[in-house]
Deep mutational scan, measured.
Amino acid sequence: TTYYDVLGVKPNATQEELKKAYRKLALKYHPDKNPNEGEKFKQISQAYEVLSDAKKRELYDKGGE
């Protein structure tokens, strides 16, 4: 599973699309609303952290993490 899959976006997604997808999923899986989905929330946050940063995203796209 790639970070793009976690957020449900395509690899060519814009920053705005990433932000929108992250917010939607973060609300859905937030531990306050969904106590059993803490791990999913962490995955979503990690994916967004990497993909929202241009340098980290470039490194990730080249095969790094």
Results as ranks from 00 to 15, higher is better:
residue 64 G to Q: 15
residue 60 Y to I: 04
residue 21 A to R: 05
residue 9 V to N: 00
residue 38 G to N: 13
residue 42 K to E: 08
residue 64 G to H: 14
residue 61 D to Q: 03
residue 10 K to I: 04
residue 19 K to N: 14
residue 54 A to I: 13
residue 25 L to P: 00
residue 53 D to I: 05
residue 60 Y to N: 03
residue 35 P to M: 06
residue 32 D to C: 14
residue 49 E to T: 07
residue 8 G to F: 05
residue 20 K to Q: 14
residue 1 T to L: 15
residue 32 D to G: 08
residue 43 Q to E: 13
residue 59 L to D: 12
residue 14 T to M: 03
residue 46 Q to Y: 10
residue 18 L to H: 00
residue 38 G to Q: 13
residue 42 K to I: 09
residue 19 K to H: 13
residue 3 Y to E: 01
residue 13 A to R: 00
residue 56 K to C: 12
residue 2 T to Y: 11
residue 24 K to Y: 12
residue 12 N to K: 05
residue 63 G to D: 12
residue 54 A to S: 10
residue 33 K to G: 08
residue 62 K to D: 06
residue 59 L to N: 10
residue 2 T to N: 13
residue 57 R to G: 03
residue 38 G to D: 08
residue 65 E to A: 14
residue 31 P to Y: 05
residue 45 S to M: 14
residue 32 D to Q: 08
residue 32 D to L: 13
residue 25 L to T: 02
residue 42 K to Q: 13
residue 47 A to D: 00
residue 26 A to E: 09
residue 42 K to Y: 10
residue 16 E to C: 09
residue 2 T to L: 09
residue 63 G to W: 15
residue 25 L to K: 05
residue 63 G to R: 10
residue 49 E to G: 07
residue 37 E to Q: 11
residue 21 A to V: 05
residue 53 D to S: 05
residue 64 G to M: 15
residue 3 Y to F: 09
residue 32 D to P: 13
residue 44 I to R: 01
residue 27 L to K: 11
residue 22 Y to P: 00
residue 24 K to V: 12
residue 59 L to I: 12
residue 48 Y to N: 01
residue 65 E to V: 13
residue 33 K to L: 14
residue 22 Y to C: 03
residue 31 P to V: 06
residue 47 A to F: 02
residue 26 A to H: 08
residue 7 L to N: 00
residue 56 K to I: 05
residue 39 E to T: 07
residue 23 R to D: 15
residue 45 S to Q: 15
residue 49 E to A: 13
residue 28 K to C: 08
residue 10 K to W: 07
residue 57 R to E: 02
residue 33 K to T: 13
residue 54 A to Y: 10
residue 4 Y to D: 00
residue 18 L to K: 00
residue 53 D to C: 06
residue 49 E to F: 11
residue 5 D to W: 06
residue 18 L to E: 00
residue 15 Q to F: 15
residue 55 K to L: 11
residue 59 L to M: 13
residue 20 K to V: 14
residue 50 V to F: 09
residue 35 P to I: 06
residue 57 R to D: 02
residue 45 S to H: 13
residue 57 R to T: 02
residue 19 K to E: 15
residue 6 V to L: 14
residue 26 A to Q: 09
residue 39 E to Y: 08
residue 55 K to M: 10
residue 35 P to Q: 07
residue 48 Y to Q: 01
residue 55 K to R: 12
residue 58 E to A: 10
